[in-house]
């Protein structure tokens, strides 16, 4: 038994989770957030064959890390964001961990049901500095929309509360979490039609097939996995 334990320990492999999703709900405090929960979940699901640890960094740093030999995975990502729509430049999981999208959020008193760009033309929009928004930016460039830039979604939500903007766009998962935490659900309204939809997948460094297999097999049924559902529900 003793020898067996040694053997097990010797087979453990640390896998880093490099993430640039440092906002809520993915990271909401020191070692707290959805990403940390994911790391624990994956470690547990691997029967401790892998030990997943979280390391947050900028997106640029994440991209540079692929030049190194180390083994890591990047969660919550979509091939479009890495200019790899054909999924040839990086090793992607076949299945997504989450279906997500950008929600159009407005004030409860002045609800906006998004149905394309024309539905928000002539309104005041609160965006995040440096982010580009399909169709919205074009309207802003044309002067059809007045855009205010903020540093985070919370401030945009506060502007909605003070009626200083008419709508904002935020990732659905994150928006739900912020509204919940800041108790803004009475003041804000989320349009049922999303501005855009996307899948959140993993990138695995250096085509580690074993990890890919491990993750894909896990992701295939993750939406039905009660333990994962329990985790997700904490942030909604």
């Amino acid at each position: 038994m003793f020898f067996l334990n040694v053997s097990i320990w010797s087979q453990q492999q640390e896998i880093k989770i490099y993430t640039y999703h440092t906002h809520a709900p993915f990271i909401i405090g020191d070692s707290i957030g959805l990403t940390y929960d994911l790391a624990e979940y994956l470690t547990a699901k691997s029967d401790n064959r892998y030990i997943f640890t979280v390391q947050s960094m900028s997106k640029t740093r994440v991209e540079k890390s692929f030049d190194n030999e180390e083994a890591f995975i990047v969660p919550w990502v979509n091939p479009i964001w890495f200019d790899d729509e054909d999924e040839e430049s990086y090793t992607w999981t076949e299945h997504a961990i989450m279906e997500d999208g950008n929600a159009v959020i407005s004030s409860s008193e002045n609800q906006i049901n998004y149905s394309g760009a024309a539905s928000v033309s002539g309104l005041r929009f609160g965006g995040i500095i440096g982010h580009r928004y399909i169709d919205i930016d074009d309207l802003a460039d044309q002067g059809e929309i007045v855009r205010f830039n903020n540093e985070n979604h919370v401030n945009n939500f506060r502007m909605l509360q003070k009626n200083r903007i008419d709508f904002t766009i935020a990732p659905l998962v994150g928006a739900e979490y912020i509204i919940q935490v800041n108790r803004m659900s009475d003041d804000l309204y989320i349009s049922p039609i999303l501005h855009s939809e996307y899948l959140r997948k993993f990138i695995i460094s250096h085509n580690d097939e074993e990890i890919v297999r491990f993750l894909d097999s896990l992701l295939l049924h993750i939406q039905e996995d009660p333990s994962w559902i329990a985790i997700i529900s904490k942030y909604r």
Binding site: G126, F148, N150, E151, N155, N156, R158, M159, K162, R164
Partner: peptide, 8 residues
Amino acid sequence: LWIVNEER
């Protein structure tokens, strides 16, 4: 203050 950016 307009954009309610308290941090700034």
